[in-house]
Amino acid sequence: MQSTILIARQYGSPDVLELITHDLPPLAEGMARIKVKATGINPIDARRMTGEFKHSSLPQTFGTEFAGVIAEINSNKTLWSVGDEVLGSGTNFTHATVIDVHINNLIKKPENMSWSVAGSLAGVAQTAMTILDEIGPVQSLLVHGGSGGVGSVTIQLAKEKGIDVVATASVHNQDYIRELGATPIVYGSGLIERLKEIHPEPFDASIDLIGNEEATETSLATVKTNGFMGSIAGKKLSSSKIQAVWVKRNPANLKYVVDRVADGRFSWIVSREYPFTEVQLAYHDILEGHTKGKSVLTY
C-alpha cells in the first residue's frame, strides 16, 4: 500500500511544503493502518514549518490528529476490525493519505459525527483536558486566545466545572466566546486595565494559548499570588512564573470530549476545510491567525 505524505525539506513559508508518495513497509505489531479521511491543522504545525520550533530533524512531517477507516491490523489482541471508523492521535504524523497508528491510540468515531469534526478533535481535546488537570480546582480562569480550537474546548470544560471564565479574542470573535459561556474581552492596548474593570478580583489561574508578551504581562498583573499561570506556547517566555503545559495523550480524555461534541453538550466549529492538495493554502491561512474553531484537511 502507498501513502502520500506532507513533508518539508527545509524551513520557510508554505512554499517549502511538498507531497511525496512512497510504499509503506510491513505493518508493525500492535499497529493499525488507517486510510485518512480528515486531519486537523494546529498552529504548532505551521510554526514547525517556519522553523520557529525545531522539534525534529529535516525533512520533517506534520500533523497529530486524524479520523479514518482501518485498512489493516497487526494484532490478535484487539476488538478493532478492518473497516472500522476511528479517530485519535497519530504516532509520527497524520498529514498523509495513509498512516500507521498504535491501536491503543484509537477511539470509535461516533456515527453522527462528520469526518471533518472527527479529524479535528484529538489534539485540542487532550490538550484542553491536560490544561484543566494542571490547573486543578479553581473558581476563576483567564484564557488568552479563547476562540481557537484548544480555547474553545478549554472554556467549555471549565464552565462544566462551574469555573468563571474570561477569555481574550479578536473583536470579530467576541460573540463566539460569549456563546461558549465565557466573558469575552478584546486583546490589545489597555488589556490589563479593562480586565480589572470587568473582573476586579484576581484570577485563580490563567492559561496562555498564544505565547506573546501581552499574555505574559497580563497574567502576572491579574492572577493572584501563588495562582496557576500556564502556557502551551512551547517556547521560552519572559517570566519563569509561567509554567509550560505539555499535552498528555489519553484516549479516555479524548473520548470524554468527543462524546460531548457528538451529543451536543459541547459546541465545536470547523471553520475551514481544505482538500489535501491545497495544503499550502491551509498552512498560509493558519499563519495568519485569528482562528475560530479549527481548520481541517480532507481527503
Rank of each mutant, 00 (worst) to 15 (best):
T4Y: 07
T4K: 10
I7R: 03
A8F: 03
A8T: 07
Y11D: 03
P14N: 04
D15I: 05
V16P: 01
V16N: 06
L17A: 10
E18T: 15
L19E: 05
T21H: 03
L27T: 03
I41F: 11
I41W: 00
P43T: 03
I44G: 00
D45Q: 06
A46S: 12
R47Y: 13
R47P: 03
R48T: 09
E52A: 10
F53N: 14
K54R: 14
H55E: 14
S57N: 12
F62E: 02
V69C: 11
I70A: 01
I70N: 00
A71M: 05
N74Y: 09
K77M: 06
T78L: 05
T78E: 02
L79M: 13
G83P: 07
L87R: 00
G90F: 03
T91H: 05
T91A: 09
N92Y: 07
T94H: 01
D100T: 14
N105Y: 08
L106V: 08
I107N: 02
K108C: 05
K109L: 08
P110Q: 05
P110H: 03
A118E: 03
L121Q: 00
Q126W: 01
Q126N: 02
I131G: 01
L132N: 13
I135K: 01
P137W: 02
V138R: 04
S140H: 04
V143S: 02
G148I: 02
G149S: 11
V153T: 04
A158Q: 02
K159C: 12
K159Y: 12
K161P: 01
I163P: 00
D164S: 09
V171S: 12
H172P: 01
N173K: 15
Y176V: 07
G181D: 15
I185W: 05
V186T: 15
R194M: 06
P200Q: 11
P200L: 13
A205I: 07
S206P: 04
G211A: 08
E214I: 08
T218F: 00
S219M: 11
G227V: 14
A233I: 08
K236N: 07
S240I: 06
V245F: 13
W246Y: 14
W246K: 08
K248F: 04
N250I: 09
V257I: 08
A262I: 09
I269G: 00
V270R: 00
S271Q: 09
R272Y: 01
R272P: 00
R272Q: 08
P275T: 11
T277C: 13
E278A: 15
A282Y: 01
Y283T: 06
Y283L: 12
D285I: 11
G289E: 12
G289I: 13
H290I: 09
